[in-house]
């Protein structure tokens, strides 16, 4: 509880107007891209580069592999954009392209990662070791950073399928319906997956850092 408050304080806000304006801009860009406008492709790439890379990195975990998939995804966008139905959600369409590539990639390289949950090992060096190795600019900032990386580490130990649903919901902030579309699964499955992922993540954190009131 205290731990959580210390780490995760802060607010998360988005102005509705900004979202609306972004949506209108996006529609124009997509329409231009469908007509073959290279600048529109460039603008879209810039708009989505961080989100798409983050999703791919959460899926495959290796930056080099995520980078390769990132490039492949944009090639797919260039090839498939004329098939894109303007009434569909673009985020879901884009992430589905990326997902198909990532899943194919994992199936080829690490097929076991797709069906078997990865073991719950603690990620890397201990938190205490890392704290010591760092200078202490301001204790609370160090703690905040430290705990964020603990959370990231704990998330990395989850199976792909669970990491994926967490990143889509919490980092990409996609709606349940959009996630279901990307995963090609019913809403109830997405919810179950989300619950199990959170359960397991919390379990991992509690077992790795038992003294920290994660209960």
């Amino acid at each position: 509880m205290m731990l959580g408050a210390a780490i995760f304080g802060g607010s998360h806000n988005n102005s509705a107007t900004a979202i609306w304006e972004a949506g209108v801009g996006l529609e124009t860009e997509i329409a231009q891209l469908r007509r073959g406008d290279l600048d529109a492709l460039s603008t879209l790439l810039t708009r989505y580069q961080n989100r798409l890379y983050r999703y791919l990195l959460r899926m495959v975990r290796q930056p080099a592999e995520a980078e390769d998939l990132f490039q492949q995804t944009w090639l797919r966008v260039a090839e498939k954009i004329h098939n894109y139905d303007q009434n569909r959600n673009f985020d879901a369409w884009l992430f589905t392209l990326a997902r198909n590539l990532a899943i194919d990639h994992l199936r080829r390289l690490r097929p076991e990662s797709l069906d078997e949950p990865v073991g719950d090992h603690a990620g890397g060096e201990s938190a205490a070791a890392r704290l010591v190795s760092r200078e202490t600019p301001a204790l609370d900032r160090v703690l905040a950073r430290e705990r964020t990386s603990r959370l990231a580490d704990a998330m990395e130990t989850l199976p792909v399928i669970q990491r994926e649903v967490l990143t889509l919901r919490f980092e990409e902030e996609l709606k349940l319906e959009e996630i279901a579309e990307i995963l090609g699964a019913p809403l109830s499955t997405v919810k179950t997956r989300l619950r199990r992922a959170l359960d397991r993540l919390r379990g991992n954190l509690e077992s790795q850092f038992p003294g920290e009131n994660w209960q």
Binding site: G4, I7, Y53
Partner: peptide, 15 residues
């Protein structure tokens, strides 16, 4: 709190 932590994970950037 856990959900908030996930929402605030640092965003990795592509090179």
């Amino acid at each position: 709190l856990l959900a908030g932590g996930l929402r605030r994970l640092p965003t990795p950037q592509p090179r």
